[in-house]
Design a protein around this nucleic acid. Structure first.
Lengths: 221, 221
DNA sequence: TCTATCATCGAACACTTGTTCGAAGTCCTC
DNA sequence: GAGGACTTCGAACAAGTGTTCGATGATAGA
């Protein structure tokens, strides 16, 4: 997508994408019809198809552009920073910053990850994998430097993504802490959780209680 | 749902619910047609409607029964345990235990939370609120007892749920750590994150870099 | 002013959707 | 084996879906 002097075409495309993202975020991708989007953008049904080949490409354009921005800015932000802890902090901050300021698009990116298929899915997902790898290697570095042992780094990585990406389910920018506060809190929990107390690591869970209660495995009994 | 000698009716209903949950988990609720379910259960389209009033009630039955089991067993497990930290550990363990052993149903519960509406939505959500309150009050207790300051407990609460509920996006029971390991890791990260290092709390994020890079607010520029 | 590209539209198509309804089949009890 | 409840089914319906197509404005460079 071009940068400086956005053409009339680009402006309108962005308008379509923004509006679509808002509706997708509210009703979900599959429950949104092209007619819904036509109504919201005040365009005709067929007129929309001038801007995308099909509904799935519409979803792709939102996801891809949104995610690309997050990643690109993340790399810019990390440039020249060597300390892995500092790098991680900046990554978290960047991620949450975009999440909060583009909740619709980020929700569509997170929640509709599997609503896309084929090559378009592959395209988004290869970027996603890169991003995950970046985080995981950062955690590895931090863990090694701080002699963290007995922690599964894949669990740690996706725990962090879970904390960050879950916010579209509860966060209300008007009622809750601001982005800075959100970022600080999550960073603090995760980072001191990562480096944290060996006492907690050592303590075993009392699996005894499980058997004691003869808990079902399947909820269906 | 009755317990001991399940009637033929109940057995078949459970079969329908389990099969539906599996398809919902794979394709998503809205992209699943009743015809898909008919095919998978080897029943006729209209025959299914003997077991539920409509597609939405089908989703409700899965979500409600699944969540009720998790909560009921959680309360049983916590009964007689006073130490809030121990209570939290057991809650996490219970939650993850059911998540891993009933991934389909728990994914449907998490991912299709907004695919349900009206009274059925209210019913599921009032339980959800109770469950969230239980966790939040547990965290409050722990934070007070350990003189944890400057931590937003709502952020902490939903960070925990994010860590736990996100697993349907990545966890593979055949490749990754087992439930016990998963539970230990997440408990360790969150708990030592909660009680954790004051140093991390004190450290301010370098918001300077933000301005330096004149990052956009909206990704659409 | 002519013209070629850009942008938009109404109408229609082929298809899938959730749901209903009346009629069968099946089972157990008397 | 008659009667009644429980269970299943085929066929149909009305509504909504994504997408296409040919035609019509708009725009701007020659």
């Amino acid at each position: 997508m071009p940068n400086e002097p956005q053409s009339k075409y680009d402006q309108k495309l962005v308008h379509v994408l923004k509006t679509s993202a808002a509706i997708f975020a509210e009703k979900g991708y599959h429950s949104t019809s092209i007619r819904d989007i036509a109504r919201a953008t005040k365009m005709s049904l067929s007129g929309l198809y001038y801007y995308f080949k099909g509904k799935e490409e519409l979803l792709f354009l939102i996801q891809d552009y949104c995610f690309s921005t997050v990643i690109d800015d993340c790399h810019k932000l990390l440039e020249g920073v060597d300390d892995p802890v500092r790098r991680l902090k900046l990554l978290i901050e960047n991620h949450l910053y975009y999440f909060v300021h583009n909740m619709n698009e980020m929700k569509v990116l997170s929640h509709e990850a599997n609503s896309i298929s084929g090559d378009l899915y592959k395209k988004v997902n290869s970027k996603k994998r890169q991003y995950v790898d970046l985080v995981m290697s950062l955690l590895e570095e931090i863990a090694r430097a701080n002699r963290v042992t007995g922690l599964d780094l894949k669990v740690a990585t996706f725990s962090l993504f879970g904390m960050m990406n879950w916010i579209y389910n509860w966060y209300n920018p008007r009622k809750d802490v601001d982005v800075a506060g959100l970022s600080q809190n999550i960073t603090r929990i995760f980072l001191s959780g990562l480096l944290g107390d060996k006492r907690i690591e050592a303590e075993r869970l009392e699996t005894g209680r499980e058997a004691q209660l003869e808990r079902k495995v399947s909820i269906w009994q």
